[in-house]
Amino acid sequence: MALLEVRNLKIYYFTREGVVKAVDGISFSVSEDETLGLIGESGCGKTTAVFSILRFVVPPGRIVGGEIIFEGRDIIPLSDEEMRLLRGEGIAMVFQGAQNALNPVMTVGKQISEVILEHESITKEEAWERAKSQLELVGIGSERVNSYPHEFSGGMKQRVMVAIATACNPRLLIMDEPVTGLDVIVQRQLLALTNSLREKMRLPIIFITHDLSVIAETCDNVAVMYAGKIVEKGDTVSLYKDPLHPYSKGLIGSYPSVRGEKKELKSIPGAPPRLINPPVGCRFYPRCPYAMDICEIEEPELKNVGDNRLVACHLIK
C-alpha cells in the first residue's frame, strides 16, 4: 500500500476566458521510502498538482475529479478542520522562493515552534527547545533562534523552511522548486541536506523542479509532466539513460551533461499549448518531431512498457 496515491486527478480553473485544464487526469503514487521527482516546464501544472495534495486550490480553481489518497484515506472530501490538522503534521511543504516565504516580523524560532505548538500538546519551553534542535538539524546553529529572516542569506532561509517543514516529523514532504533562484553552491548544500534528512528521518519526498540535475541527484523515480498530463514515468536512472517519450527526449537532450560525450544541445521548438483549448489528440503533437496522423486525432494513453516504465505515446507499442 502506497503512502500517497493520486488517481486520475483533475484540477480546472474556471476563468472568464474559459476552462483552463491545469491538471487533466494524472495518477501517481509515492511509497514510504521513495523520493519522487516531478519535472516539467513552468506552467505544465506540476505546482498545481502538488498544491492540491495540501488542498491548496483557490478559486477560480477547483478539483473536479479524482482521488488523493493519503494513508488510506481520500483527502478531497475532508472537512477544512481535518485538512488543517493534516497540514504541517502529516504532509509538510517547502516552497519556492524562501525570500518571501518566511514572515519578516517574526523570529525564526517562533516560526518553527509555532507549528509544533499547533500540532503537539507540549509547553512553549519544550517547543522552543525543539526549534533550537531543528535549527541544529539543518545546520544553522541554535544560537540563531532569535534572529529575524532578513538576517539570513537566501540559502539559510531555505534551510529554515526545511526546519519548519520537518519540525513535526511529517510522513510526507513536498518540496516545490526549493533551490530555484539560489546559486549553484548553495543549491548543492541544500540538496545534500535534503538527502541526509531523507536518510535520517526516512522521509518520503515529492520533489518538483524544472532542473534535471536536481532530480538526478535526489530522486528514485521521476514523472515527466507536459501540459497538465504525465507523459512518462520510470526510475530515474533508466529514464535518463533511455527516455522514450519525444518530450522527455527533448528535455534530456536540451540539458548539458557534465561528464560523458559532448552532445549537441537541442531546444524543443515551439511553446507549450494554452490549456484553455488544448489540442484534441496528443498535447505534444504540435511540437513533436515524430508526429503521426493518429497523434492529431487520438490522445495516447499511459501504457506500461515493462520494468515499471509508463509512457503515453503512439510511437511506443
Binding site: R87, N100, L102, N103, P104, M106, E114, E118, I164
Partner: peptide
C-alpha cells in the same frame, strides 16, 4: 498575498492565528 501566508497555511495553523500573527502584524507596519 505574500508567500508567508501560504507558509502559515501549510503549517496547519488556525485561521485566527494566521490572521493575527501573520497577516495583521505585517499589515499594521
Amino acid at each position: 498575498g505574500q508567500d508567508y501566508i501560504i507558509t502559515a497555511r501549510a503549517k496547519g495553523l488556525k485561521e485566527s492565528a494566521i490572521l493575527k500573527n501573520h497577516a495583521l502584524r505585517n499589515a499594521l507596519l
